[in-house]
Simulated scan of single mutants.
Amino acid sequence: MYLLFANVDNNGYTELTTEPLIDSDLLILTTCENVNFTYANISLINQCGQVIESYAPLKLDQLGILTKIRVPRQAFRIQTMLQLSNGIQIQRIEKQLISPTMFTVELTNQPYMLSIGETIQMNYTLKSSISEQVYIHLQIRDTLNLISSNGIEKNLIFTNETSQMDLFTLPRSFQLKSINDMIIFTLSTYNNKTDQFSYENDDIAL
């Protein structure tokens, strides 16, 4: 089992729940319960099983292995190599294929708790793996159409990242006791050659 963590600020990390951003730094925490090992190596492998990059752990003990990686520009799986105390080497390849993305949306100060009739300020950051200026069309909608049937739409121009804020109100007529995954961010990028926006990815929040 493994967990991916993204660097939020200088004070700590948070678990990654969406596709990682290309060329960003991530921490992988690999758990190794009931295994007595003396050496560990973490590799990123492509869909053909070829090694993209190998990493030595930052920290390891009998509970887990902490490794810092650089997200590649292609889909990858995580491979763990362990050498046991008796000299035997074992290998584990995770089944999940991780597909990096060129753009991400990160909500700050999660989770958001919203009462009926209350308005909250939703802060989020868009990040780009492209080192030049990008033109993004952002659509924010909710699964219950509480914002509006068309949601919120923005055209944004930025380099590397931009921080945004929107207000969200839960109407007094709202009946459900609790809901999850309410807000969906849809990103599209502008193509100069075709003069059109092309779909990139969805990120679910709340």
Rank of each mutant, 00 (worst) to 15 (best):
S24A: 08
L44W: 04
S149W: 03
E33F: 01
V134G: 02
S178H: 05
N11W: 00
P100A: 02
I120W: 12
M122T: 03
I204V: 07
V105N: 00
F76T: 07
Q74N: 11
T101G: 02
N86R: 06
Y199L: 08
L156H: 01
I140G: 01
T31S: 13
K127E: 02
Q196P: 10
A6E: 05
F168A: 04
M182K: 14
D9W: 01
L27K: 14
T159W: 00
D61N: 15
A75F: 05
K95G: 14
G87I: 00
L63R: 15
T143S: 06
F174T: 11
C48R: 01
I78F: 09
K68S: 13
T162N: 11
C32K: 12
H137A: 13
F76D: 10
D166F: 10
T189W: 03
L21T: 04
L84Q: 09
K127Q: 01
Q110S: 11
Y124H: 01
K95D: 15
T30P: 14
T104R: 12
K154H: 02
K59P: 13
M81I: 15
R141F: 07
R172N: 14
L144C: 12
L29S: 13
S24G: 04
I179K: 02
L187F: 00
E53C: 11
T67N: 02
L21M: 04
I147N: 01
V134R: 00
T143C: 01
Q164E: 12
F197G: 07
D23W: 00
N11T: 01
I88N: 15
T194Q: 09
E15Y: 09
I136W: 03
L21P: 08
V8W: 10
M102C: 11
F76E: 03
D195G: 09
Y135A: 06
K59G: 14
Q79Y: 09
Y112C: 09
T108S: 12
S131F: 02
R172V: 10
E200Y: 00
L206M: 11
R70L: 09
Q175K: 08
A56W: 01
E15G: 11
T169L: 05
S54Q: 12
T101S: 02
S99I: 02
N11H: 04
N180G: 08
I65G: 08
N41W: 06
L170M: 08
E161M: 01
S99G: 04
C32H: 12
E33Y: 03
F174H: 13
T159A: 07
N7G: 11
